[in-house]
Write a protein that binds this DNA or RNA. Structure first.
Lengths: 218, 218
DNA sequence: TATAATTTTTAGACATGTCTAAATTAATAT
DNA sequence: ATATTAATTTAGACATGTCTAAAAATTATA
């Protein structure tokens, strides 16, 4: 059974390895977990001995099937708790991340599955992130970043890629939340900023923001 | 901010010091936490430095106001989570203790208070134990152990003093739960066992069991 | 009250996870 | 191909919380 710290390492490696199972570097993990590369080196050795990751010195690491499975189940817990906090306890979507970071480490598969049932088996968390089921399978999603939309079109916000209160708060100000319909008016070539219209109000957003909003074209 | 371990020590000391603020011995704490007296000695020194307990070498410890307050708030969290687990997630009352032991360490006063509201400010947990409010005040209770009932009478079960699955399971078998009406038929002097009647079924229970069932006389 | 038994504390060790500073390996540039 | 730079690992230290074994203090007993 991995410790909480080990779980956080697995989660970070999962997040950083993306869809194509890239090798993850020591430095990348250190940055993600706000720790030092030397600490990562130590931990990576331990996770490797437990067969949770593949590790080649100076090369990088990747998750084993067992490690990946553990990471996915931690993410499952994190996202289910976020649904609970927002939908049942009336937290706002920018307030739940830190609490869910704690709750995701509670050990009880019974608890997770009963919570899942209690919440009616949600497919997405309050930020639009997909929630894996008890088998560890993610619901299919075909979302793209708003920054990749070329032409004038109408789209729907399906998720956000950043969990930080500051960012989520800014979206609240723009009246953007999951499900919001957005009309693309103009993509400005020189700085890739976008002019959009929400509920007949025209707005201007930067690439940095657009990159972190996932949409599906209507 | 105390660590999880420190919180567990505070909780144990609170439990052991009873209503009359007795001094708690090192050995008692060690037994309660299933650890060694030497470990307790170390920890007690640390808690004392943090002004959470009063500690005199070789004498014993007692909680300071600050330590007591912390302990009470951990108990508050524990019991609120138990209500959530039983009333909302449909756990049985003998299944929730270990999970609540984990949940009680989640840090967020916002969370506790929203959970409290979500559960409609319950006064008692599934085992009948009183839940302190946000100020740390316990609801008044005037329950006595079933073992102290002298005469033939009708009583109502209001709480249990033991959280162990084995004991709770046994009560389930006897059809005893919080709120159950029990008729005392006979107290047997030689072994203090009691003959009772529940729903017209006659039963026989030992002192050990009776001591851990709290009742109020009807 | 002196001695025995018990309780509590201390000393020294270990495991976990972290850090800084130094050493090693790999990547990049000249 | 060699020198420089960057990334990674190792060595040694520290903090937390635990343990065993031994010492000290307290309590009980004769």
């Amino acid at each position: 059974m991995p410790t909480q710290t080990e779980e956080n390492y697995l989660k970070a490696i999962f997040k950083l390895s993306g869809n194509e199972k890239e090798l993850v570097s020591t430095n990348a993990i250190a940055e993600e977990l706000e720790t030092k590369a030397s600490s990562v080196s130590d931990m990576v050795k331990k996770l490797s001995e437990k067969n949770l990751i593949n590790y080649v010195k100076y090369q990088g690491v990747s998750l084993t099937n067992e490690g990946r499975d553990l990471a996915v189940h931690i993410i499952r817990k994190h996202r289910l708790w976020e649904v609970f906090l927002v939908n049942r306890l009336n937290f706002k979507w920018d307030e739940v991340h830190d609490i869910a970071e704690q709750l995701e480490h509670i050990r009880s598969s019974e608890l997770v599955n009963k919570l899942d049932a209690f919440l009616c088996y949600p497919n997405y968390d309050p930020h639009g992130d997909p929630i894996p089921n008890a088998k560890g399978e993610f619901p299919k999603t075909t979302a793209i970043p708003l920054s990749e939309v070329q032409s004038k079109s109408k789209v729907k916000v399906v998720a956000v890629e950043l969990d930080e209160p500051g960012f989520l708060n800014y979206l609240d100000k723009l009246n953007i939340s999951i499900g919001t319909q957005v009309e693309i008016l103009e993509v400005n070539d020189f700085d890739d900023s976008i002019d959009i219209k929400i509920d007949d109000v025209q707005r201007h957003i930067s690439v940095e923001v657009a990159e972190n909003i996932l949409i599906s074209v209507l």
